[in-house]
Amino acid sequence: MKDPYKVLNVPRTASDEEIKKAYRELARKYHPDNYAGNPLADLVQEKMKEVNEAYDQIQRERASGGSHGYTGAGGSGATGFAHIRNMINMGRFSEAELMIDAVAQSDRNAEWNYLKGVVLIKRGWYIDAQRYLESACYMDPDNAEYKNTLNNLRNSASSYGGGYRGAQSSISPCDICANLICADCLCECCGGDLIPCC
């Protein structure tokens, strides 16, 4: 199954409103009316189905769990910290954080690190959040929930720029230096000097 966010061409961090908008645009683009009598009508039907499924999946995930994270953070594997998860799901982060910090050092397992990371994301402390999420992943490498949250955090950083980034830069630092040195040589030939130290 394809990543539903990729199908709708939106970042994971997109708001519900943005997702709805992207979905509407695609639905308009692949609307059967546009392909009436078109020889590619069957392909479009498949595409439309894919878009519908992706939208449904995102809706389901967002309704069932945390705000981001498309494998449904919140709930499933909850064992020892169910009450903290409940707090987080209700959006009461500062209370959740107090409860997290109250946990004894000896009980701080992978899940604890994970929840701490989640709360830190909410606070906007992304460096610390990554550290805790990494510990969670390190302590329990098979847990998809931990891994996804960490990946989502990193992905949302790499998708920064709303599609404006992704260009290949054609000038390397080496080129800049080489060009400067050339320019300096030329200047010196004429009696001037661009880079005084060489």
Partner: peptide, 17 residues
């Protein structure tokens, strides 16, 4: 319009630019 309809089905994921 016909060209647009066909192009909408092209998958540019390997060359998004």
């Amino acid at each position: 319009k016909g060209l647009e309809a066909a192009l909408a089905l092209v998958d540019f994921s390997t060359c998004p630019g």
